[in-house]
Amino acid sequence: MHADAIKCVNLSRDFRSKGKTVHALKNVNLTVKKGELFGLLGPNGAGKTTLIKILTTLLLPTSGRAYVYGYDVEKEFRKIRPIINMVAGGETSGYGLLTVFENLWMFSQFYGIPNKTATERINSMLARLRIQELAKRKVRALSTGERQKVNIIRGFMTEPLIVFLDEPTLGLDVETARMIRKFVKEWIAENKERTVLLTTHYMMEADELCDRIAIIDRGKIIALDSPAELKKLVKSDVSINLEIKPAIKLDWLSRIDGIVGHTAAHQDGKVKLRLVAKDDAVVGEVVSGIYKENGKIVSLHKDEPTLEDVFLKLTGRGLE
């Protein structure tokens, strides 16, 4: 069997609409090894879902090549489909009038799983995700979190070699998201042959789960390494969190030398500012700038560098 679970070579994908061309992926080169939990981190519209669609045989590349378990996504898609599965966040798959068990059973049939095996797997996974009591409930009566747990079971019950998770915890509560992350970690640890490709724009999720991460922005991979190595990119920098009241203008920040990047979130008449700077020296200048704008600092503290800071440093923008 081939060594690489996924391999992309100069992979590009364009979308054309009304005379305009959008370059969703630009010359992506990527290798994911078997047994890896690989993350694709990037903001909305970065090209993550496009890449997943290509790798799951739903979309063809405009140029370049992509291989899943050594099979070409363009020519050998029939060999890929039995060994993969996918789960997307916010998905409403199946039929609302079927029960959870029936929906899962139906999908198991599309993978040719015998009845007895399908029943055993479904029951065992329902128990594992602590939703056995939902087996006989109609899918249309499920909450968002419950529905996503069912989707997770749908994606994993066929025992694929590679699972593609596209924002699997999107819009979920903390507890459900945590349970899904735990499940994914345990699943991949059970068998060295298993691989997961996860896309997310939650940096904490990528940091917690992934062996390696590719940071993708505007269709290009701009960094690829383990979370620890990626964070080294901002090791010498300083990350500072500020909370300012009221929500003042911050366009002057970009004129200060030494600021690598910043993100600002406006909320309840306040602004939460995160700065990545080359050193502490900029703090004085930032503070006086805030006072000039008649802002008041509610809190200020230094922070450990995160993957978001890496993204900020590489692109000058935040992930959200």
């Binding site: 039995p82 039929y95 009038l97 079927l98 029936e102 059973w105 139906m106 999908f107 198991s108 049939q109 599309f110 993978y111 040719g112 799983i113 015998p114």
Partner: peptide, 26 residues
């Protein structure tokens, strides 16, 4: 996997909601 068996199971899987739907949504 046996392709014939796979496809027969798939047919059964997709026919199921159609038949169940008749009973559940009279």
């Amino acid at each position: 996997m046996n392709t014939v068996l796979l496809n027969l199971r798939a047919i059964r899987g997709r026919a199921y909601p159609r038949i169940v739907g008749l009973i559940r949504e009279p």
